[in-house]
Amino acid sequence: MTAPAQPMTIGDLSPAALRKTLAAGLRFRVGAFSIVARSSLPSVAEGIAAVYPDYPILENDAFIDFAVRVATPLGARAVVRPQVNFQFDGYQPFKPLPQAQAFPLLEWGLNWCAANHAHQYVISHAAVVEKSGRALILPGTPGSGKSTLCAALIQRGWRLLSDELTLTDPETGMVIPLPRPVSLKNQSIDVIRSFAPETVFSAAAYDTLKGTVAHLRAPRASIVRDSESALPAWLVFPKYQAEVTLQLTPLNRGQALVRLADNTFNYSVLGLTAFRTLGDLVRRCDCYDFTYSELDDAIQAFDALAETQR
């Protein structure tokens, strides 16, 4: 028997095999991180089947960065209004949530792992996409619609690096891909469904702290290219506003740096290293404030940016 040319992916497992593997520990890779996820909950297996089919499965002896588990706590709460816990190698960083939120909890937990245990990178709260090796960074001030923009861009030829955590390597200044499923909330879910009807979502979880939440499958091409880092080129602070005409206003680099630092989870942990890394990043980038109401117009504007000679 010859070895398969491609490593096995999660989608190669039958639903029954996935459930069984997940109960014992499903080992897979997302970008730079190796993960083992454990859960016996059917909703977690279903969520993974929906949005994780294209991620490579790892060998049993692979080094694991984050060993996580989503499980029902023992006791009365297992029966009455059942809850779920997220565990990171035995730690429980959050309070339990209702069981219907088990899959989003896995996603939030993985965000927590990266944001708290990967200080080898400067970690900013920003979506980031790539075209021709150049990265467009969209920091996530609340109400900005960065995830919606990101979800739309990756349906139109931009490569997903991350919808939530922009990882910048202080050694090289490059953005490191972490192409996880894109988290969308409330109206954004339907906006993207009608924008790109062929997209695949995990089942929506209602009444979470963030409202209704669903996760969008990352494009396969982004996952296959998850070892290709990208050079920061544009730093754009988006703002969604109904019925405005699109505006792309140049922003001075000093202001852009301060605002990006504000959106950087581990700025104070890395201190001077973070200041230097983000300073270099801002120097490399064209920085803008961006107001939009229509996704098609927004994408056109970013495509035009990508066309310009630098």
């Binding site: 960065d65 990967a118 200080h119 080898q120 104070s268 942990v269 890395l270």
Partner: peptide, 12 residues
């Protein structure tokens, strides 16, 4: 990477 991450936390 994990050692570097922990050293950065310790530095802080």
């Amino acid at each position: 990477q994990h050692l570097i991450s922990a050293l950065r936390v310790a530095g802080k």
